[in-house]
Simulated assay, not measured.
Amino acid sequence: MNKPYIIGIAGGSGSGKTFFLKCFLEHFSADEVCLVSQDDYYFPVAHHMTKEENMYYNFDLPSTIDHDHFEADIDSLMNGQTIVKKEYTFNNPDAIPKMLEIKSAPIIIVEGLFILHFKKIAETLDLKIFIEADNDIALQRRLKRDLLERGYSHEDVMYRWANHVTPAYKEFLLPYKGECDKIIVNNSHKAEDIICVTEEISRDLRQRVLI
């Protein structure tokens, strides 16, 4: 097996990374592409904290990620090995984490907030994609997700946005924007706009990588 082609997809909270990835992955089979997400490498802390402590704990720092494990798993995938990882459940005590089996593929997607900040990971990337959205749009997406899907209060979401999310984005992601090969502005509420972008990128990859 030739060296896999590594794509890094970075974007702040509310930029629309999840939807972009969903659209992108639909262009490929499971044998052609695999995905490894930074979110599954948070150090587990929920069982140590009260609900109030959890609210003030800053998850938007590189130190909250077990980057050694993250890097080791990326290396394993690059060497054609399968990895097994416990799913991260975002400190939801009612969620039962699944065991994720990720098989290596010709295209490996690495996604997350800090993937460009972690130098060893950034150096492995063949294609760097930066997804961004205007601040007010990103915040509305964050509110919708955290209020509905994760059961956070409005106060909690706004506190995290002002004190954790925005400072982390400015310090650990935005400085690397200029190093990226593609910058995608995702302010649209039309799914077709992102679908068109992913079709263009996937078509190029089929011509250059999957031959």
Rank of each mutant, 00 (worst) to 15 (best):
A138H: 02
H48P: 01
N2S: 12
T64S: 11
K177N: 04
C196S: 15
V45H: 14
M158N: 11
L35V: 07
C196R: 12
L148K: 11
F90K: 12
I109R: 06
L61I: 11
P93L: 02
S13M: 05
D126E: 01
P93Y: 02
H47N: 15
K190V: 12
M99H: 04
R141F: 09
A30N: 08
L116E: 00
C34P: 00
E171K: 13
L61V: 08
L61K: 11
E26L: 14
I108L: 02
R145W: 07
N91R: 10
Y41G: 08
Q207S: 12
F118Y: 12
K190W: 08
C196Y: 07
E171V: 01
L116M: 14
K22L: 03
K51I: 07
I96S: 12
D134F: 05
G151A: 08
P62S: 09
P44E: 13
H47R: 14
G80M: 10
F172H: 06
F19W: 10
D146Q: 03
S202V: 10
V84I: 12
K3G: 09
S13W: 00
N58A: 03
Y159M: 08
D73P: 07
E123K: 13
K98S: 10
T166F: 00
E171H: 10
E32F: 10
E149L: 07
